[in-house]
Simulated assay, not measured.
Amino acid sequence: MDLILWRHAETENDSDDLARRLTDKGQQQAKLSAQWLQQHLPDNYQVYCSEAVRTQQTASYLKQPVSIHKLLNPDSHPLTLATFLQQQPPATTQVWIGHQPWIGQFCAYLLNGSWLPQQFWSVKKSAFWWFDVRFYQQRHQARLKVALLPSVLK
């Protein structure tokens, strides 16, 4: 399967974490990332995002139906996501829009093949990492295909 992990774009500061919205800059970031993705994604891909408003706003730039999953919320744990990933159909392309630190932790998990809490990579706002993920006897093998920042796409 192809799995794209896309961090939400820049947001306003607000005390209600799930209600935070994209700034004007964040809207531009999301638009740039979405334009690149739309040019490279197959016709039949699925989009998942967290319950946070900022991920839903980021997802809206893909102009596709979106499934909202609590598993992708800011407090998600990479091992829970690994279980969710194993349950997905293997011949699909999925875009998961979420948050740091779990996106960076999950990127490290996919490429390292195991979970180490202290290992994660910084994923900048509205950046995405595109993986080819295969499963062999309940173990995964992931290959990074693309990692892009919106600032590179200008």
Score class of each variant (00 low, 15 high):
Q100G: 04
T58H: 00
N13C: 14
R7K: 09
L22E: 05
T83I: 13
A34F: 04
H40E: 08
D132R: 14
Q27K: 12
A91Y: 10
L18P: 06
L37N: 04
G113T: 01
R21I: 03
C49A: 01
G104N: 02
Q88A: 02
Q141C: 15
Q28E: 09
N73F: 07
A91E: 14
D24F: 14
R7Y: 04
S114H: 15
Q138H: 15
L116M: 07
H77D: 11
L41H: 12
F128V: 02
T80W: 14
L85E: 10
S126V: 09
C49F: 04
M1D: 11
L79G: 10
F84A: 03
Y45M: 13
A19Y: 04
A142Y: 12
P89S: 00
E12H: 08
W130H: 04
R134Y: 15
T23K: 11
N112E: 15
T58N: 08
H69I: 01
L18Q: 08
R54L: 07
A30F: 03
L72W: 01
C107A: 05
W36R: 07
H8V: 01
W6S: 00
M1G: 07
L71R: 07
G98K: 06
L144D: 07
H99F: 07
Q100I: 12
P89T: 05
S122H: 04
K63C: 05
D14H: 14
A142K: 01
S15N: 15
D17I: 08
N13V: 04
Q94N: 14
D24K: 14
G26N: 09
W130S: 03
Y45C: 00
P101V: 06
L5K: 11
P90G: 09
R21Y: 07
H99S: 08
K31S: 03
R7S: 07
H8S: 05
Q87R: 01
K145F: 03
G104H: 02
S76Y: 02
R134C: 15
F135N: 14
F131V: 03
H77R: 09
L3F: 11
W6L: 08
R20H: 02
T83A: 00
A30C: 11
K63G: 05
S122F: 06
L62G: 02
G104L: 06
D2E: 08
S33I: 08
L18G: 09
Q27F: 00
A34Q: 12
L18W: 07
Q118Y: 01
K31T: 05
Q138N: 15
W36F: 02
T83K: 12
P42G: 10
A59H: 01
H140C: 14
P65C: 10
W129H: 13
T80E: 13
Q118S: 10
D2K: 03
K63Y: 10
S33V: 12
K70R: 13
L148G: 03
L3D: 00
L5I: 01
Q39R: 13
G104Q: 10
F135E: 15
P150H: 03
Q138V: 14
E12Y: 00
T93M: 05
D14L: 09
V133D: 10
G26T: 11
D132E: 11
L153Q: 02
K154F: 15
Q141K: 15
G26M: 11
D2P: 05
L148I: 12
V53L: 06
L62W: 02
Q35E: 04
W102R: 07
A82S: 13
G26P: 05
G26D: 11
V53H: 11
A9G: 12
S33Q: 05
L41Q: 11
Y48N: 06
Y61L: 07
F106R: 07
V66N: 01
Q119T: 10
